[in-house]
Design a protein around this nucleic acid. Structure first.
Length: 556
RNA sequence: GCGCCUAUAGCUCAAUCGGAUAGAGCAUUGGAUUUCUAAUCCAAAGGCUGGGGGUUCGAUUCCCUCUGGGCGCACCA
């Protein structure tokens, strides 16, 4: 199992601090990568942070600290800079030893594991679109965020369930079946109105044609319960197949598709209602049942059951989360678009009302996605049928670019997807930059074999040791750190940033170092080992992002 | 009116719980043994980090305020 480099070094720095008589600094000191590679391999702010309590000038304290630090076996030398930064250089032997660990790992994934989750059951719920139409580019964003986070949480030892929550009963589904029926009848020249809030999209027309093939004229001008049920079944099944297929093209498979309806049939909804009633958390007013959320947060009370007897979305979602807790999850993450953020406080209030632990319910919010076409931002609406679907997007730019592009933008920033750009210029997409680094290394190995240099894993590493070698390995060692940083902020873009940097480092290294030199087989082999270390990290990162790591790049 | 997110190079975005000279890609300009695959590399140019205050050794980051953009404020989901 890999160590997190920064933590490991922070411990070393802290040990040194303790030895010079400074305790309790562990939580405040940090080890970072300096902004300029010439400064050092790592740097720490320890002397600056501790100066006040030690009643010593930062640089003076730094002198004492570096003396202690240099006693460590891994440390080559230290330097004091600026207001009191301590820059640390580690020994080449340390780096080659670490490279060996990466190389000797039978599978990269095992070496890069870091078990902090302790097999805790965690659920990540995302997409969760009702089967009323194709997925939009907005759904795509949470599909990718959810999928990548799931993979990385798994890597950190959590038992992850990828869950899709859907409602295939309610009011919207009724409108869906009626919309289909209207379109079906149009095929016979019979005009009816698509219901208010119904579905106008072209995909309904396609469905209608299919439906006519299947049932002929059976429901021509006939609307009854049977027609409703058949239209609903047709629309729902087709839409769900379609959605699942879209997700599959993006490489996403859910562990559980959870039906909202089951919360009613298995008694969960009744149970939650009884709990609220018993604990005096609800009251009736205007014929509706209200939850006293105002007891918990600064908001007005909310309706659980409408005056017509139908439960609200709020209520079923409370039941959904109650059920999640009952199903044994210790923690859940819901990935929601920013348009749902108003829902968060009241859900938290409901969790409190139910006596569920504060850290159980978590929302990962992402900002909205819009499309740019012909230089203009396109507004999208599922119900009006004016949107670009996720399929269309994947079709245009491909799975890898779609995933990478969604992942690389901070979830808190709005994502504007420029369709024309994605279509016209593949060079625009940084995914190729990373993939190319991987392919380049593959071809290096091939080339070495052609020139009679048989690759020997883990040998000749003593030939490494240049500054460039050390820094390349240092960056590889920061991989697990970057994964950890990613899940501690739930931000997939940290990973794409990291791996882009690795690719850049490698491309630079490649241009100034010869890998395959028949006249110096030993150095060649050492560098090939380094290259394979890089490839291992890139391949692993790309697999977490869900992007292919090609052996060869097609030339443009 | 209230709440959440956001504002960084011409464009799309980074910047490690407050750190050193704010970095990449694309676009522009000039270069790289006709290659270990040039989807690469090197260099130049491009910034009062939306405006103004504050906190401290130090602010793109934290606080206040103003302005612009997105999204919410239902007996919709």
């Amino acid at each position: 199992m890999a160590k997190m480099m920064k933590n490991w070094l922070t411990d070393i720095v802290n040990d040194s601090l303790v030895k010079i008589g400074i305790e309790d600094a562990a939580s405040r000191i940090r080890v970072e990568v300096p902004p300029n590679r010439d400064f050092g391999d790592f740097s720490t702010n320890a002397a600056m942070v501790c100066a006040k309590s030690a009643k010593t000038a930062p640089r003076k304290l730094a002198e004492k600290l570096t003396e202690e630090l240099e006693k460590n076996q891994a440390v080559e030398k230290t330097e004091i800079a600026g207001p009191g930064f301590i820059n640390i250089f580690l020994k080449s032997e340390f780096y080659t030893q670490k490279l060996l660990e990466i190389l000797n790992a039978e599978k990269g994934a095992d070496y890069f594991k870091y078990n902090i989750g302790k097999n805790e059951k965690v659920q990540i719920e995302f997409v969760s679109a009702n089967p009323t139409g194709p997925l939009t580019v907005g759904h795509g964003r949470q599909a990718i965020i959810g999928d990548i986070l799931s993979s990385v949480y798994k890597r950190f030892g959590y038992q992850i369930t990828r869950e899709y929550y859907f409602n295939d009963a309610g009011k919207q589904m009724k409108k869906l079946s009626r919309s289909l029926w209207v379109r079906y009848n149009e095929l016979f020249g019979i005009e009816n109105e698509i219901p208010e809030g119904g579905y106008h999209g072209d995909y309904i027309i396609d469905l209608a044609k299919d439906f006519r093939e299947e049932v002929g004229e059976k429901y021509k001008n006939i609307w009854n319960e049977q027609a409703d049920a058949d239209c609903l079944a047709k629309a729902k099944d087709e839409m769900f197949d379609h959605i699942k297929n879209t997700l599959k093209t993006l490489g996403i498979v859910f562990d559980v598709y959870f039906s909202e309806g089951s919360l009613f049939t298995d008694g969960t909804v009744d149970k939650v209602k009884a709990y609220f009633t018993d604990n005096d958390l609800v009251y009736e007013s205007d014929g509706a049942l209200w939850l006293k959320v105002s007891q918990f947060i600064d908001e007005k009370d909310k309706v659980l059951i409408r005056s017509d007897g139908m439960p609200t979305y709020f209520f079923t979602d409370i039941a959904n989360h109650y059920k999640k807790r009952e199903r044994g999850f210790r923690k859940v993450f819901d990935i929601w678009g920013a348009d749902h953020h108003g829902h968060i406080p009241r859900m938290k209030a409901a969790m409190k009302a139910l006596g569920i632990e504060d850290d159980f319910f978590n929302v990962i919010l992402h900002q909205m996605v819009s499309l740019k076409k012909g230089g203009e931002i396109v507004k999208m609406s599922t119900r009006a049928g004016t949107f670009t679907t996720l399929d269309e997007l994947v079709e245009m730019v491909g799975k890898d670019a779609t995933r990478y592009f969604y992942a690389m933008v901070d979830k808190d920033a709005q994502l504007i997807f420029d369709i024309d750009l994605a279509k016209s210029q593949s060079m625009e997409n940084p995914v190729y930059y990373v993939q190319y680094a991987h392919a380049r290394i593959c071809s290096l190995i091939e080339n070495a074999e052609r020139k009679g240099i048989a690759f020997k894993r883990g040998e000749n590493l003593e030939k490494l040791g240049s500054r460039a070698d050390n820094l390349m390995i240092r960056d590889l060692l920061l991989y697990v750190d970057s994964l950890y940083e990613m899940i501690s902020t739930n931000s997939p873009h940290k990973l794409t940033n990291y791996i882009h940097d690795i690719a850049a480092m490698f491309h630079q290294y490649y241009n100034s170092n010869v890998f395959v030199n028949p006249e110096d087989a030993q150095t060649s082999n050492a560098r090939l080992n380094l290259a394979i270390g890089v490839r291992t990290v890139i391949a692993d990162a790309l697999s977490l992002i869900g992007v292919d790591a090609p052996q060869k790049m097609e030339q443009i």
